[in-house]
Nucleic acid binder design. Structure first.
Lengths: 110, 110
DNA sequence: TCATCCCCTTACTTTTAAGTAAGTACATTA
DNA sequence: TAATGTACTTACTTAAAAGTAAGGGGATGA
């Protein structure tokens, strides 16, 4: 039986929709990061939510997790090639969101 | 004091992120609709969630609510001019989401 | 040996979103 | 008079997401 497809807009919202996911991706667009780096760069995120969201993004194929068997071992998170296809989408979303924030600001200031 | 702006991607996710909002907008892109029309067109939505999401979208300026003082009075919901700026954003999101759904289907089929 | 760092996981609690069921106020129609 | 239709709101319950706090297993360093 074929899986029932949800509305594609909802699919995207589901992929990006965790509280810290846009921030995690924003950081990984800049450069690959280790768990601890992300923890420091994203204020107020808990270890639990960070690892949970990283696993979600990994499961969707957006983020790659690479373990370097060095001593001490290090784990690096990066945007996958597929994950990079999200960048232009995020840019469009970002532009609309910025404009909307400005609009709301003007509204509340008037 | 200036409001703290949230991340613009989160702003958009907040605007579109209710369970029934993409579906409501999809219906209103096609044509103006009354409360009852939307109820019939969106299976499983409750009156509570429909009116709550419509009020959210109205508050954000996406949807216009027009009351016609006919007998019986009728209330019509429509995409505002500003709401129409969401259409190209939704199209980009939709295209990515569709591709992602296909990708997941292939993955699970292999 | 004791503390510390890295990369997490687990159990539990709180908060937020959504669902269910009923009710309201007005009107028309049978 | 009773039922139906439109456009909702309110109170209550359930489910999903996020937050809090603690621990664990491996390593290094003092």
């Amino acid at each position: 039986m074929i899986h029932q497809r949800e509305c594609p807009v909802e699919t995207l919202i589901h992929v990006l929709g965790g509280k810290w996911k846009p921030m995690i991706l924003w950081q990984l667009i800049e450069s690959n990061k280790r768990f601890n780096d992300l923890e420091k760069l994203i204020p107020d995120v808990s270890q639990k939510m960070l690892s949970q969201h990283l696993r979600d993004l990994e499961r969707e194929g957006i983020v790659d997790r690479t373990i370097y068997p060095t001593i001490p071992p290090k784990v690096e998170y990066s945007l996958s090639e597929y994950g990079k296809t999200l960048i232009p989408v995020a840019e469009v979303m970002c532009a609309w969101g910025e404009n909307h924030n400005k609009r709301k600001y003007k509204e509340s200031a008037s």
